[in-house]
Amino acid sequence: MSSLTQFFRHVGSEMRKVSWPRRKELTGYTITVVATVTILALFFAGIDLVISKSIRFILGL
């Protein structure tokens, strides 16, 4: 049981050393991630649509 307590003490010690991003940085990172995911989702949806239409055209459906 003491090893578990020691583990959590070490975790707490390491968490205090972490350099957490400021609110402005976090907002910038969040906007970047959301924009990137949106752009990639639209890109792959477009590719999927083109491939689907192509296959339907080739098969005559």
Rank of each mutant, 00 (worst) to 15 (best):
S54Q: 04
S19E: 15
L26K: 07
T30G: 03
Y29K: 15
G46E: 02
S13D: 14
S52V: 06
A35R: 10
T36G: 10
F44T: 10
T5Y: 09
E25H: 06
V11H: 03
S19M: 11
S52M: 08
R9P: 00
F43W: 08
S13H: 12
I58A: 13
R22D: 15
G46C: 02
L40S: 08
T38P: 02
S19K: 15
M15L: 15
L59V: 07
E14W: 04
E25F: 02
L59A: 11
E14I: 06
R22Q: 12
F7K: 13
M1K: 11
I58E: 07
F44N: 06
V50I: 15
I31S: 08
V18R: 07
V50R: 05
Q6W: 08
I55T: 03
V33L: 14
S52P: 00
L42V: 14
F43D: 02
G46W: 02
P21F: 08
V18I: 12
T30S: 11
S2Y: 11
F43N: 02
V33H: 04
I47K: 07
F8T: 04
T36K: 09
I51H: 03
F7V: 08
R16M: 11
R23L: 10
T5K: 12
F8G: 01
P21C: 04
W20F: 14
R9I: 05
F43G: 04
A41Q: 04
L49K: 14
S13P: 00
V11M: 11
D48Q: 10
R16H: 09
V33T: 10
I47Q: 05
V50D: 03
S2M: 11
L61D: 04
G46L: 03
T32K: 15
E14D: 09
R16T: 12
I55K: 02
W20A: 12
A35P: 00
M1G: 14
S3Q: 13
T27I: 13
I55V: 14
Y29L: 15
R16K: 15
R23W: 07
T27V: 12
E25C: 01
L4W: 09
G28D: 08
D48T: 14
V33C: 06
G60P: 01
R16N: 10
S52H: 13
F57K: 08
V34P: 01
I47V: 15
L4R: 13
I51C: 01
W20H: 07
V34N: 01
S2P: 02
R16Q: 14
S54L: 07
V34Q: 03
S3M: 12
F57V: 00
Q6T: 14
M1F: 09
K53G: 00
Y29W: 14
M15P: 00
S3P: 00
M15W: 04
G12P: 01
V33F: 11
M15T: 08
I47G: 00
G28Y: 03
I31F: 09
E14N: 06
T27P: 00
L4D: 13
G28N: 11
R22N: 14
I58H: 04
T27E: 13
E25V: 07
R9M: 10
